[in-house]
Nucleic acid binder design. Structure first.
Lengths: 341, 341
DNA sequence: GTGAAAGCGCTAACAT
DNA sequence: ATGTTAGCGCTTTCAC
């Protein structure tokens, strides 16, 4: 059952090469290259015109393989997402794709499933592809990551910071402030003993949120008892929320709001509450605020994270030839209040 | 010969090349190439071992640029999605990524925004990248598509068929049967005059669903009056549903169920109903059945489309050296009944 | 201002 | 069974 490779002759609709353009324009390939790469003061206006003409006529596009081979660098940018099923990741990926495209870069999307082994596999692959940069949507610590850190390929961490270097390139929100915002809002609206449901603390974002919330409530004189702080009992965010809500009910916990470190967790918790014998209606807070929330979760107050603008920030970081000073883009968030009147 | 080190920019953590492997293993680069590509009967077991050893020691991965240049074909597979914000597209992309990965292929994800111009731009780019195959998640008619059809690059159409060739490679469900299933189910449960809200009929999938539903009801002696068939008044699926539901209310239409050609449309319609003065509770049908539905839309009966298996089918189509007979993968769907008891 | 030519890493003919 | 070698398309000295 051998997998035969396709014959070596995909050459069919022979794609024009730089040589064809040169011939047609009556110049050398070197000249074509210079014109196309905008090397200044290196071609007469007349030559430039002839080259452009030929390019247009042949619908020529430089072969990326040739270019990459020569330059030892491709136009590929890898985006390694921890979990593509998460709408949040998909949203960031979408915005990143648009922004990269505007810079003539191409996005390669990979799902690491939060698995260090798989992440490394992708990192190796991307090294072979000579990727221009690598974007992590939820990085996990791994050997190859350690190896590539400091290397020539820019590594950009979105949402979750580089687990091995808190000063690495970063795009995200101020999670400490966001946590405080939620706590402040809750306190201002009479909430005194919320239950706090959170994802694994391995993520710097989750950690910051949890700490900020806990500290804010403590500072306000309403410390959250440990029994009301529930960690991940499951793998999926949805399941985490569901399980936590069940646990709260089973233990007969007394709480006046639910604060979740992610909207999906809130979805899970809400579902359990809705399914229970006599659903209670209490404020629920989350983070992310997917646009879909307006439609499917009008009961959820959530910290709106501007994922649609993340891509732009990522692209800028890549463009700013890594020399630039501040390698950090902290974007503005906003708490969307959807408490039921 | 000399080990000349051309001082090109990104030269840093010098990635091992086939020459390095050859040197280390004490063989020629041709032998290394043969071993790595599994050319049978062409190397002694001992040589193979030495080569593999060297490969492991150097953590060598063949440069894709070199390979692509030589073979005139890259390992990139482009996925052109009409709208990445749609969770459905994201789900297909995710499953495709996994399946491609297993074949050593790499997914490039692009969002065409359903725009022919942009789709063509991507097609040109992917030609320059010498993509192995191109996967359309909702193709739109465009000049470059016409040009590439019949070319050497496999084109695979998911969900929506090739707008220019109904016989092109296809992965999806039997939309006619799915439409009938919904109608049959509705009829069996006493529904006699449903309102039908649909997306633009430009999509072959939508068209098939609408026709099947209309015909089924007509055949059962309960034809759906034109006034109850609402087309797209907006651009987004969510907005389509919302606007349609509003229209129905304004016109005081009399209907006993809502059938939507997509879950997002159903979300929109449901939202309007919920927001209205006295929300009515009536059966709502959709198509897609995102896994999130169990959590956020327990009121929605929907045709479960196995998007998680689409990727596998796509990958198979790509692997099957395009000679293979049936270039069509019609996958099984299933109506999930979530009517409120 | 322009051209000739040397490779970048790889595979496949063609030797041996 | 293994080595030699000719390019694939491109950028970039180095000549002129």
């Amino acid at each position: 059952m051998t997998m035969r490779r396709t014959a070596l002759k995909p050459a069919d609709a022979q794609q024009a090469s730089i040589a064809n353009v040169a011939e047609r324009a009556g110049v050398s390939i070197a000249t074509v290259s210079r014109v196309l790469n905008g090397i200044a003061n290196k071609a007469s206006p007349e030559t430039v015109a002839r080259v452009r003409q030929a390019v247009a006529e042949l619908d020529y596009r430089p072969s990326s393989a040739g270019k990459s081979l020569r330059q030892r660098q491709s136009r590929l940018v890898a985006v390694l997402a921890a979990n593509l099923a998460n709408p949040t990741m998909a949203a960031i990926a979408a915005s990143t794709e648009v922004a990269l495209r505007q810079q003539g870069l191409v996005m390669v999307l990979c799902d690491t499933h939060d698995d260090p082994k798989l992440q490394d596999e992708y990192l190796r692959e991307m090294r072979a592809q000579q990727a221009r940069a690598i974007v992590f949507l939820g990085a996990v610590a791994s050997p190859m990551l350690d190896l590539m850190r400091g290397g020539p390929t820019p590594l950009i961490f979105v949402n979750r910071r580089d687990p091995g270097d808190p000063n690495g390139d970063f795009v995200g929100i101020d999670n400490v402030q966001a946590g405080r915002d939620v706590a402040t809002h809750a306190l201002a609206h009479g909430i005194r003993h919320p239950a706090l449901i959170h994802a694994p603390l391995a993520s710097s974002a989750t950690r910051a949120r949890v700490e900020a919330i806990v500290e804010s409530f403590a500072a306000a004189g309403h410390p959250i008892p440990p029994s009301l702080v529930l960690g991940p009992a499951e793998k999926e965010h949805l399941a985490i929320g569901y399980a936590a809500a069940r646990l709260l009910q089973r233990d007969g916990a007394d709480y006046d709001a639910l604060i979740c470190t992610g909207d999906l967790i809130a979805f899970g918790a809400h579902r359990f509450i809705e399914e229970s014998a006599r659903p209670v209606s209490l404020p629920i807070y989350g983070f992310d605020d997917n646009p879909l929330n307006d439609w499917v979760a009008p009961w959820l107050s959530s910290v709106l994270i501007p994922y649609g603008t993340f891509g732009q920030a990522v692209a800028e970081l890549i463009a700013e030839d890594r020399e630039g000073g501040d390698r950090e883009r902290v974007l503005p968030h906003k708490l969307v209040d959807r408490r039921r009147s």
